[in-house]
Protein backbone atom coordinates (compact mmCIF):
# COMPACT_ATOMS: atom_id res chain seq x y z
CA UNK A 1 0.00 0.00 0.00
CA UNK A 2 1.33 3.44 -0.91
CA UNK A 3 1.61 5.79 2.06
CA UNK A 4 -0.07 9.11 1.18
CA UNK A 5 2.24 12.12 1.04
CA UNK A 6 -0.38 14.14 2.94
CA UNK A 7 -3.42 12.73 4.68
CA UNK A 8 -6.06 14.95 6.29
CA UNK A 9 -8.03 12.68 8.60
CA UNK A 10 -11.36 13.98 9.94
CA UNK A 11 -9.71 17.35 10.40
CA UNK A 12 -11.77 19.94 12.21
CA UNK A 13 -10.82 23.44 13.24
CA UNK A 14 -13.28 25.58 15.13
CA UNK A 15 -12.81 29.12 16.35
CA UNK A 16 -15.27 30.73 18.73
CA UNK A 17 -18.03 31.53 16.21
CA UNK A 18 -16.61 29.89 13.14
CA UNK A 19 -15.95 26.42 11.84
CA UNK A 20 -12.94 26.79 9.56
CA UNK A 21 -12.60 23.09 8.77
CA UNK A 22 -15.35 20.54 9.14
CA UNK A 23 -14.35 16.86 9.08
CA UNK A 24 -11.93 17.22 6.18
CA UNK A 25 -10.76 13.85 4.86
CA UNK A 26 -8.36 13.92 1.93
CA UNK A 27 -5.33 11.94 0.76
CA UNK A 28 -2.61 13.25 -1.56
CA UNK A 29 -0.45 10.67 -3.29
CA UNK A 30 3.36 11.02 -3.45
CA UNK A 31 4.42 13.04 -6.48
CA UNK A 32 0.92 14.38 -7.04
CA UNK A 33 0.20 17.97 -8.09
CA UNK A 34 -2.90 18.83 -6.08
CA UNK A 35 -5.01 21.99 -5.94
CA UNK A 36 -7.13 23.16 -3.04
CA UNK A 37 -9.83 25.47 -4.32
CA UNK A 38 -12.60 27.47 -2.72
CA UNK A 39 -13.91 30.95 -2.13
CA UNK A 40 -12.39 33.22 0.54
CA UNK A 41 -12.87 31.71 3.99
CA UNK A 42 -13.31 28.17 2.64
CA UNK A 43 -10.52 26.83 4.87
CA UNK A 44 -7.73 26.49 2.29
CA UNK A 45 -5.05 28.36 4.23
CA UNK A 46 -6.18 26.82 7.52
CA UNK A 47 -5.67 23.35 6.00
CA UNK A 48 -2.16 24.24 4.88
CA UNK A 49 -1.28 25.76 8.24
CA UNK A 50 -2.30 22.60 10.10
CA UNK A 51 0.42 20.77 8.17
CA UNK A 52 3.19 22.93 9.57
CA UNK A 53 1.71 23.44 13.00
CA UNK A 54 0.70 27.09 12.70
CA UNK A 55 -2.89 26.03 13.34
CA UNK A 56 -3.75 23.49 16.04
CA UNK A 57 -6.58 21.16 14.93
CA UNK A 58 -9.64 21.03 17.18
CA UNK A 59 -10.11 17.38 16.19
CA UNK A 60 -8.67 14.91 13.70
CA UNK A 61 -5.12 14.90 12.47
CA UNK A 62 -2.80 15.44 9.53
CA UNK A 63 -0.29 12.79 8.57
CA UNK A 64 2.70 13.53 6.38
CA UNK A 65 4.11 10.26 5.07
CA UNK A 66 2.56 8.59 8.11
CA UNK A 67 4.11 11.11 10.53
CA UNK A 68 1.74 13.06 12.76
CA UNK A 69 2.00 16.79 12.01
CA UNK A 70 1.62 17.67 15.71
CA UNK A 71 3.48 14.89 17.49
CA UNK A 72 6.29 14.46 14.93
CA UNK A 73 6.46 18.11 13.90
CA UNK A 74 10.26 18.24 13.59
CA UNK A 75 10.41 15.33 11.13
CA UNK A 76 7.37 16.64 9.27
CA UNK A 77 8.89 20.10 8.86
CA UNK A 78 12.02 18.59 7.30
CA UNK A 79 9.86 17.10 4.53
CA UNK A 80 7.90 20.26 3.79
CA UNK A 81 8.68 23.59 2.15
CA UNK A 82 6.01 26.29 2.29
CA UNK A 83 5.31 29.64 0.70
CA UNK A 84 2.77 31.78 2.50
CA UNK A 85 0.11 33.98 0.95
CA UNK A 86 1.73 37.11 2.41
CA UNK A 87 5.37 38.03 1.87
CA UNK A 88 6.90 36.34 4.89
CA UNK A 89 10.49 37.49 4.57
CA UNK A 90 12.96 38.33 7.32
CA UNK A 91 13.50 41.90 6.19
CA UNK A 92 14.80 43.30 9.49
CA UNK A 93 18.47 43.26 8.53
CA UNK A 94 19.12 40.50 6.00
CA UNK A 95 19.74 40.82 2.30
CA UNK A 96 18.25 38.47 -0.31
CA UNK A 97 21.09 35.92 -0.26
CA UNK A 98 21.28 35.95 3.54
CA UNK A 99 17.54 35.29 3.78
CA UNK A 100 18.04 32.08 1.82
CA UNK A 101 21.13 31.04 3.79
CA UNK A 102 19.46 31.60 7.17
CA UNK A 103 16.39 29.69 5.98
CA UNK A 104 18.56 26.71 5.05
CA UNK A 105 20.34 26.99 8.40
CA UNK A 106 17.06 26.58 10.28
CA UNK A 107 16.68 23.28 8.45
CA UNK A 108 20.16 22.11 9.47
CA UNK A 109 21.91 22.76 6.14
CA UNK A 110 25.56 23.66 6.76
CA UNK A 111 26.62 27.22 5.87
CA UNK A 112 28.87 25.94 3.05
CA UNK A 113 26.12 23.95 1.37
CA UNK A 114 23.57 26.67 2.08
CA UNK A 115 25.76 29.20 0.23
CA UNK A 116 26.07 27.11 -2.91
CA UNK A 117 22.37 26.14 -2.82
CA UNK A 118 21.41 29.82 -2.41
CA UNK A 119 23.55 30.80 -5.41
CA UNK A 120 22.02 28.03 -7.50
CA UNK A 121 18.45 29.10 -6.65
CA UNK A 122 19.23 32.82 -7.05
CA UNK A 123 20.30 32.10 -10.62
CA UNK A 124 17.40 29.75 -11.30
CA UNK A 125 14.89 32.35 -10.06
CA UNK A 126 16.59 35.27 -11.84
CA UNK A 127 17.46 36.98 -8.56
CA UNK A 128 21.25 36.83 -8.86
CA UNK A 129 21.58 40.55 -9.57
CA UNK A 130 19.54 41.29 -6.47
CA UNK A 131 21.45 38.99 -4.12
CA UNK A 132 22.87 41.85 -2.05
CA UNK A 133 19.65 43.89 -2.04
CA UNK A 134 17.29 44.32 0.86
CA UNK A 135 13.75 42.97 0.55
CA UNK A 136 12.37 46.52 0.49
CA UNK A 137 14.18 47.07 -2.83
CA UNK A 138 12.46 44.13 -4.57
CA UNK A 139 9.38 44.29 -6.76
CA UNK A 140 6.32 42.16 -5.91
CA UNK A 141 7.29 39.60 -8.53
CA UNK A 142 10.82 39.31 -7.17
CA UNK A 143 9.45 38.81 -3.66
CA UNK A 144 7.21 36.01 -4.97
CA UNK A 145 10.21 34.31 -6.58
CA UNK A 146 12.27 34.77 -3.43
CA UNK A 147 9.50 33.16 -1.36
CA UNK A 148 9.54 30.19 -3.69
CA UNK A 149 13.34 29.93 -3.59
CA UNK A 150 13.21 30.10 0.22
CA UNK A 151 10.78 27.18 0.36
CA UNK A 152 13.15 25.11 -1.79
CA UNK A 153 16.37 25.82 0.11
CA UNK A 154 16.31 22.52 2.04
CA UNK A 155 15.15 20.58 -1.03
CA UNK A 156 11.84 19.40 0.47
CA UNK A 157 9.90 16.42 -0.83
CA UNK A 158 6.60 18.24 -0.40
CA UNK A 159 5.93 21.77 -1.55
CA UNK A 160 3.00 23.70 -0.10
CA UNK A 161 2.08 26.86 -1.96
CA UNK A 162 -0.55 29.25 -0.66
CA UNK A 163 -1.64 31.33 -3.66
CA UNK A 164 1.85 31.47 -5.18
CA UNK A 165 0.78 33.62 -8.12
CA UNK A 166 -1.46 36.07 -6.25
CA UNK A 167 -0.80 39.55 -7.59
CA UNK A 168 1.68 38.30 -10.21
CA UNK A 169 1.47 39.67 -13.75
CA UNK A 170 0.83 37.33 -16.67
CA UNK A 171 4.51 36.84 -17.53
CA UNK A 172 5.52 36.10 -13.95
CA UNK A 173 2.57 33.75 -13.55
CA UNK A 174 3.73 31.76 -16.57
CA UNK A 175 7.31 31.73 -15.23
CA UNK A 176 6.09 30.37 -11.89
CA UNK A 177 3.94 27.74 -13.64
CA UNK A 178 6.97 26.53 -15.59
CA UNK A 179 9.04 26.33 -12.41
CA UNK A 180 6.30 24.40 -10.61
CA UNK A 181 5.99 21.98 -13.50
CA UNK A 182 9.75 21.41 -13.32
CA UNK A 183 9.54 20.60 -9.61
CA UNK A 184 6.65 18.29 -10.24
CA UNK A 185 8.68 16.47 -12.87
CA UNK A 186 11.43 16.06 -10.29
CA UNK A 187 8.94 13.99 -8.27
CA UNK A 188 7.96 16.54 -5.65
CA UNK A 189 4.46 16.47 -4.21
CA UNK A 190 2.85 19.86 -4.64
CA UNK A 191 -0.19 21.15 -2.77
CA UNK A 192 -1.36 24.50 -4.05
CA UNK A 193 -4.19 26.85 -3.24
CA UNK A 194 -5.33 29.34 -5.81
CA UNK A 195 -8.23 31.52 -6.85
CA UNK A 196 -7.21 31.22 -10.52
CA UNK A 197 -9.13 28.21 -11.77
CA UNK A 198 -7.36 28.13 -15.12
CA UNK A 199 -4.13 27.79 -13.12
CA UNK A 200 -5.51 24.78 -11.24
CA UNK A 201 -6.85 23.30 -14.48
CA UNK A 202 -3.50 23.71 -16.17
CA UNK A 203 -1.24 22.47 -13.37
CA UNK A 204 -3.12 20.15 -11.05
CA UNK A 205 -3.70 16.44 -11.57
CA UNK A 206 -6.49 16.53 -8.97
CA UNK A 207 -8.31 19.31 -7.17
CA UNK A 208 -10.53 19.53 -4.11
CA UNK A 209 -13.22 22.17 -3.77
CA UNK A 210 -13.93 23.46 -0.29
CA UNK A 211 -16.74 25.63 0.97
CA UNK A 212 -17.03 26.78 4.61
CA UNK A 213 -14.53 24.14 5.67
CA UNK A 214 -16.39 21.26 4.00
CA UNK A 215 -15.15 19.21 1.10
CA UNK A 216 -17.63 19.50 -1.79
CA UNK A 217 -15.82 17.56 -4.48
CA UNK A 218 -12.51 15.97 -5.33
CA UNK A 219 -11.14 14.63 -8.57
CA UNK A 220 -9.23 15.54 -11.70
CA UNK A 221 -10.46 18.76 -13.37
CA UNK A 222 -11.58 16.79 -16.45
CA UNK A 223 -13.34 14.16 -14.38
CA UNK A 224 -15.20 16.79 -12.34
CA UNK A 225 -16.26 18.61 -15.51
CA UNK A 226 -17.43 15.41 -17.17
CA UNK A 227 -19.44 14.32 -14.11
CA UNK A 228 -21.28 17.63 -14.15
CA UNK A 229 -21.58 17.93 -17.88
CA UNK A 230 -19.45 21.05 -17.94
CA UNK A 231 -16.49 22.11 -20.06
CA UNK A 232 -14.40 24.12 -17.65
CA UNK A 233 -13.37 23.76 -14.01
CA UNK A 234 -14.63 27.28 -13.41
CA UNK A 235 -18.19 26.19 -14.33
CA UNK A 236 -17.95 23.17 -12.03
CA UNK A 237 -16.69 25.41 -9.24
CA UNK A 238 -19.50 27.93 -9.62
CA UNK A 239 -22.15 25.22 -9.83
CA UNK A 240 -20.91 23.52 -6.67
CA UNK A 241 -20.50 26.71 -4.66
CA UNK A 242 -23.91 28.09 -5.71
CA UNK A 243 -25.79 24.86 -5.08
CA UNK A 244 -24.11 24.51 -1.67
CA UNK A 245 -25.21 28.04 -0.73
CA UNK A 246 -28.81 27.07 -1.51
Amino acid sequence: MIVPAISFQHLRKAYRNLIALDDLCLDLQPGEFFGLLGPNGAGKTTSLHTIIGLVKPTAGRVLIKDLDAVRDYRQVHRLVGITFQEFVLDAQFLNVREILIYQAGYFGVSPKHAGSRADELLQQFALWDKRASRVQELSGGMKRRLMLAKALMHDPEILILDEPTAGADVELRHQIWEMLQDFHQQGKTILLTTHYLEEAERLCERVAILQKGRLLAVGSPKELARQRDQHRLEDVFLELIRSDKQ
Binding site: I52, Q75, V80, L89, Q92, Y106
Partner: peptide, 10 residues
Protein backbone atom coordinates in the same frame (compact mmCIF):
# COMPACT_ATOMS: atom_id res chain seq x y z
CA UNK B 1 5.06 37.25 10.23
CA UNK B 2 8.57 35.90 9.70
CA UNK B 3 8.40 34.01 13.01
CA UNK B 4 6.76 31.42 10.73
CA UNK B 5 10.21 30.71 9.26
CA UNK B 6 11.38 29.28 12.58
CA UNK B 7 8.01 27.73 13.43
CA UNK B 8 7.84 25.81 10.15
CA UNK B 9 11.44 24.57 10.50
CA UNK B 10 12.61 21.43 12.33
Amino acid sequence: GNIADALSSP
